[in-house]
Design a protein around this nucleic acid. Structure first.
Lengths: 238, 238
DNA sequence: CCCGATTGTCACACCGCTGTCATACTCGCG
DNA sequence: CGCGAGTATGACAGCGGTGTGACAATCGGG
């Protein structure tokens, strides 16, 4: 039984798992579903594969030697280049504390062991479906702000803008989704990750930081507050 | 106890459920929370309601005669017009296969029976919060007033109109339900929410504020007072 | 190990929105 | 024409949403 639909085929999944039997099982199951599978047995190998293949999704085991799955997840989400790659974590059943911590790293879903292959594949499909396809664009421009995605550089009015990782992702999201209102919760979902438990007001703070960074170029007015709803990125002033 | 927040007010939910007792229960519970509820007992009725009302969310029972819930979900997600409407599935407990297939159909969440109303409402709220309004670049136009739902922006005669949250919802409701009289009580129900106790006179005030906002564009005459009854939004002057 | 950068949270100030009231006005009817 | 009910308008106090600066914790690099 193949449960994935056509849009899933050919997607590359990086499996980070130290136990070879499980790794092989995962590879077999996922390849049977039509995915490309990259396997890594530790964090080091995973980093290589990550940079080289740029997978569409990372499946990572919570229990890992040397660098734990949690650490690796944090590392992944901290790197602006890879932060938008969805992440699913494999975790042992019932470890509530672990589960919460795992969620806090910003992973998009988690699957508890023992798991059925069908369920795993289903969750992978669900996460991939949610993911925006436009992840590998070279250059984004909106309202005089130019983002060089590959170099992770931002320019506005010729002057270069220095941003922290979170502000960069925020701006990147806004420039690729302009002229739309987003609630704080939606922004948390799409920029921080789908299962992060963070105060909604934190969004305000990062909005402010981004505004401050854009102010010298006079572009801070592109971020508009929609009272009672959220924020909007727009070229036309309100 | 109402667990929904203001952004949920007036959202329309289509309930597709063949068993009348459950359908009535769902309707009661959801309406108490301030949702608009459309009920359909089979796929055919659901299609009608879907096209006519364009609900904000579809709640569908897995077990359905003739066309199963799964089939209907696939149909929904395949139709370009409706694919962006979020979908929650009701399913019997413990049926692993069902769970997997449900996720794969592209439904945004599922609730296993028996379920608590609180949980159902919580999940509905969560899904609705995630959903971006006006998923398919929805635009409403009436009498020279144009509403960009996604951006939550209003234009009339080319000039942009600035509205507060309540006035925006009021105008949004009017433009999507023109040429029809609504009493103050009806407007309170549909715009403020079903269980809000507010002076009916307050409606007058917001009508006035909306008129004032539309006046610069000369569109304030679209809101007509029907003495002894309520208000009407119409293109033809009285 | 120390230092700067980044991040999430909080407290406080501010201001626009909101609901209500009092008053002025309009309409229909006897 | 006058009356009463219904409606428009302006004002206002309270509330809540938002902006902002500060701070502790954490992270990464030297």
């Amino acid at each position: 039984m193949t449960v994935t639909d056509s849009s899933m085929r050919g997607k590359t999944i990086l499996v980070v798992e130290d136990e070879k039997p499980i790794r092989d099982l995962l590879r077999f199951s996922l390849e049977r579903e039509g995915f490309q599978v990259e396997a890594a047995e530790d964090a080091a190998a995973a980093r290589l594969s990550l940079a080289e293949k740029r997978p569409d999704l990372v499946l990572i085991d919570w229990m890992m030697p040397v660098t734990s799955g949690l650490e690796f997840a944090r590392e992944l989400k901290a790197a602006a280049t890879f932060a938008d790659i969805p992440l699913i974590m494999l975790t042992a059943r019932g470890e509530e504390g672990d589960k919460v911590k795992g969620l806090n790293t910003g992973c998009d879903d988690y699957v508890t062991k023992p798991f059925s292959t069908a369920e795993l594949v289903a969750r992978i499909s669900a996460v991939l479906r949610r993911t925006v396809p436009g992840g590998s664009d070279e250059r984004i421009e909106f309202g005089g702000i130019e983002i060089n995605v590959a170099a992770q550089r931002v320019e506005a009015n010729g002057q270069s803008i220095n941003l922290g990782p979170t502000e960069y992702r925020l701006l990147h999201f806004f420039t690729s989704h302009p002229e739309r209102v987003y609630s704080r919760e939606q922004l948390l979902d799409r920029i921080w990750g789908q299962n992060v438990y963070i105060e909604e007001r934190t969004v305000d703070v990062h909005i402010r930081r981004l505004r401050k960074a854009l102010a010298p170029a006079g572009k801070d007015n592109l971020i508009q507050t929609v009272r009672g709803t959220g924020y909007r990125f727009s070229a036309t002033p309100s």
